[in-house]
Design a protein around this nucleic acid. Structure first.
Lengths: 119, 119
DNA sequence: TTGACACATTCCCATATGGGAATACGATGG
DNA sequence: CCATCGTATTCCCATATGGGAATGTGTCAA
């Protein structure tokens, strides 16, 4: 098997930096494609392709308005990413480094207790 | 150009579910490869390959202990993901839906004010 | 109807993937 | 020294990618 399709996941879809840029641009509200093309400085077909991927994972939604197609953000599918990453947040926090020390101390106290009974 | 290398980013590295499983397994502490092999139920070479990717983006570190290689988590590189995704968190919160209404009201009030001066 | 505009789609290519199979490699025990 | 254990690496393949170029499609204005 090759790599998982980019349309499998929000995880996969968002791995591409341009796709993140698009979402960031849409955070300010609904935008037509040409706005995004201008904002990202990429060829229009490329932007449309990225939008397609984002649509397929549900990260954006479209609305027709005359000649234009207005894209808007739908952040919901990002939630699993947030949930997953959030649990690691404490690991790079300074406070956690100190907590680590505390846990080590607790572990030592524990082994002292068991020393009396078992060994 | 093809898709960005999985070793480019934590974003890319973590798009693969198995790699996330490995990190999850390492959250409980240092583990030798065979532990991970057993935990994930994957062929050993495959686990080693995933670990290589994780090493290259700095998400895990290794330590030699006799015949074994003990891997440990290094969550730091996940931070950019958390930072990025966090800013979208409010968008799927119920509270935000109500905030949205409030902002609309403010916007209307604003245009009423400017109506007096400009138009 | 025709032309211009806003987008989407298609075809093409180089590239790197995840997985399978087999093998190489360093450390340890006998 | 040799066999074995714990891992890493290599070779192979099918697959889907991001991008470029060109073309298709629907809408509006004249």
């Amino acid at each position: 098997m090759a790599r998982a399709a980019t349309t499998t996941d929000a995880f996969n879809a968002v791995a591409e930096p341009r796709r993140r840029q698009i979402l960031d641009a849409l955070a300010n509200g609904e935008r037509p494609v040409n706005d995004l093309v201008a904002a990202l400085g990429l060829p229009q077909p490329l932007v449309s392709k990225h939008l397609r991927v984002l649509r397929q994972v549900g990260l954006v939604e479209v609305r027709d308005e005359g000649r234009q197609r207005l894209y808007r953000l739908n952040a919901g599918p990002l939630r699993p990413i947030h949930e997953w990453v959030k649990s690691y947040e404490q690991l790079w926090t300074e406070r956690f480094a100190r907590l680590d020390v505390v846990l080590e101390e607790l572990k030592e106290l524990e082994s002292e207790d068991t020393d009396d009974d078992d060994e």
